[in-house]
Amino acid sequence: MEILVCVKRVPDTAENEIAVKADGTDIVRDDVVYSVNEWDNYAVEEAIQIRDNVGGTVTVVSVGDAESEEIIRREMAMGADTGVLLSDSAFEGSDGLGVATILKSFVDKGKYDLILTGALADDGAGQVGGMLAALLDLPYASVVNKIEVKGDKLLVGREIEGGNQEMNEISLPCVLSIQTGINEPRYVGIRGIRKVASLEIPCDGKDACGLDAGIIGAAGAKVKRLTYFVPELGEGAEMIEGSTEEQVEKVIEILKAKGGIK
């Protein structure tokens, strides 16, 4: 099975306090720790497991700046066979559709049976997988938490509300967006990273992708991000200040009053 996994480099929200620049044009990016989008690690792990079961190759592709090479290498250290970066100043300011359009141009150059994305990334949109499927005219299933290969079809589980699982049969080729928890992504150690550190990652720009600048980047975007902001919030939580000991005392007092200690 030829498998393509789309991966995105994102600020690690578990590690960073994200703040908005004073002029609202962007988030403060100095000192931000980046990593591969959490969901994409699960997608790459799933692809590797499928390949190891039925044969084939795993390719990872990312649309981003030169620094995205680092996450492509990381996913190759996990076990992906090839990695490609799609990068061009003309790609900047793309909306989700722009990114999907760029990815489609790459898919069209190869022959993939299965294309995986993450269910969600840092923008909280969960849009690229479904858009890519529609652009390619392929069947799609989102929030997938189980995949079983059955000949030219897949049995896929979608995670739906309440922790229930919706089972579907989907024909190949198809696009799936992968939910966290579908597997346990393998650990990549320093040694693994070292092995891929000097790997050349091929990089395609707008022309290599055969893309017209008008349909991608800021020019092609139907959705424009105007500003980031931090809203005036209501009162929010009453914050307990003081030393840890004082905080602990106060918390216990409050818990007792609210029936939190039995």
Partner: peptide
């Protein structure tokens, strides 16, 4: 965006 840490106008 960013797991609810910031808001954006689009």
């Amino acid at each position: 965006e960013y797991a609810g840490q910031v808001y954006a106008k689009v």
